[in-house]
Design a protein around this nucleic acid. Structure first.
Lengths: 239, 239
DNA sequence: CGGTTGTTTGATAGGCCTCAAAGTCAGTGG
DNA sequence: CCACTGACTTTGAGGCCTATCAAACAACCG
């Protein structure tokens, strides 16, 4: 059920058998939600967190005028709202972008296992710090990169993150987003996202169609994006 | 020495006397650095973290072409690079923007106190999650807000954060930034920052001159920014 | 198969960038 | 005390990137 989650943890640190058992035991429930559902509503008191088991989800913040910014995309294995464990509520929504399954982990169980295994506390602390590192990279994209480089960068990031949980195949991956949602992620309009997509296809041979990203020349894409995966902390070490 | 740090922690949760003693005891050294120094270099292995005691510092990421994005500003009391405790290195620089003093906290002492006081582990975990919440709000600014609203929003945020550590006075606060550095924070050019500053002055009666922000009408500023401080998690509760 | 949602294209406008130069200010040294 | 210097701020002109508005087109779905 949460195999991809464990897989992702193990990419960054050793997780003992006892720890793994504790993590698996902390899952209380698994729920299914259709696309475009709000999983967690901003500012509602939370006493559980959720691991994304399958599907695509996001964190999004709405503005008064109805526009929104997606601040992170979540793939299978991500602890989408682990930060609510210490924050007690979220200042953003968690929403599904496709059909999703979530594993529910109550905060009191999180507290138990992090007190029993201080190492796991650090591993999960690390996980939220990694989210923050991704936020920072997105800030650079939004603040300093052109629309083209920003989009290329996102496609690179998702390739690496999905590859880690074995969700890439044939030089690409499923990304069930509309162009409007992609635009909300990249801080641009849907029209411009469409045009940028066309430019990216002709420049770097990257396709985005029918919910799938196909990368025929990853190096070309990386060059356009000036992509360096170091911010994803892919090295395994004791946390 | 780290009074402002303790003050900030206590704004979000109760910190016991024993915990406070442990925190103060974890400080090994205090160092002084002039403006425009690099405190922590990206990708260097870290075995300590630093609390900003006084001055203004930032997290910054450089691009190949020499441009940069400042992804967070740090004020006195902030644990500027607490995340290196679990990340082991940072993917960005920490740099000073004014003369600064830092308290050095070795990671092994952090490990000690977080294992001895699981509650402190959560308090510090919370602190890094708060950083991430600020990152997300900045993503919204960079992605969806106009230059004017973005600048207004930053000035609001800094007012609240500085007020928390008693560093505001006479309806304003010291912000020893050049316009170019402000521009790097807001994802715009220095020229445009200058023009936006002028617009903000005439629209919301906000001055930024000689390293000081003077706000004569905070409500007007908040309106321009659509500022809501909820993302700063200002409520005190058990973490 | 009609309606709805999502994609694509075109025309126009505007916000922000770029380049360049002038103006201001604090600090320095004669 | 006053040139001189270097850093920073301000202004102007022109252009590009991206937004906006509108409409046609394509794809999906009950």
């Amino acid at each position: 059920m949460i195999d991809k989650h464990i897989l992702k943890l193990r990419a960054r640190d050793d997780i003992g058998a006892e720890e793994e058992t504790a993590i698996r035991g902390a899952v209380k429930d698994v729920v299914r939600l259709p696309a475009d559902s709000v999983v967690v509503r901003a500012f509602e008191p939370m006493d559980y967190s959720t691991i994304l088991v399958s599907g695509l989800a996001c964190r999004q913040k709405d503005l008064r005028d109805g526009r929104r910014q997606i601040t992170e995309l979540h793939v299978a294995g991500d602890f989408t709202d682990l930060h609510s464990f210490t924050l007690k509520y979220l200042e953003h929504d968690i929403a599904t972008l496709s059909d999703c399954r979530f594993a529910i982990v109550p905060h009191d169980r999180l507290r138990e296992i992090t007190e029993r295994f201080p190492h796991l506390a650090r591993v999960y602390w690390f996980a939220t710090n990694l989210d923050a590192a991704i936020h920072r990279e997105w800030s650079v994209s939004l603040g300093r990169r052109s629309a083209l480089a920003r989009m290329a960068h996102l496609f690179c990031e998702l390739y690496v993150r999905l590859d880690l949980v074995e969700l890439t195949h044939d030089g690409g991956y499923d990304l069930p987003l509309t162009q409007a949602e992609l635009a909300d992620t990249l801080g641009m309009t849907a029209v411009h996202a469409n045009r940028t997509l066309q430019e990216l296809r002709s420049l770097a041979h990257v396709e985005f169609a029918r919910g799938r990203v196909s990368i025929s020349d990853f190096d070309a894409l990386k060059r356009v994006a000036e992509f360096n995966p170091a911010y994803l902390y892919l090295d395994r070490r004791a946390r």
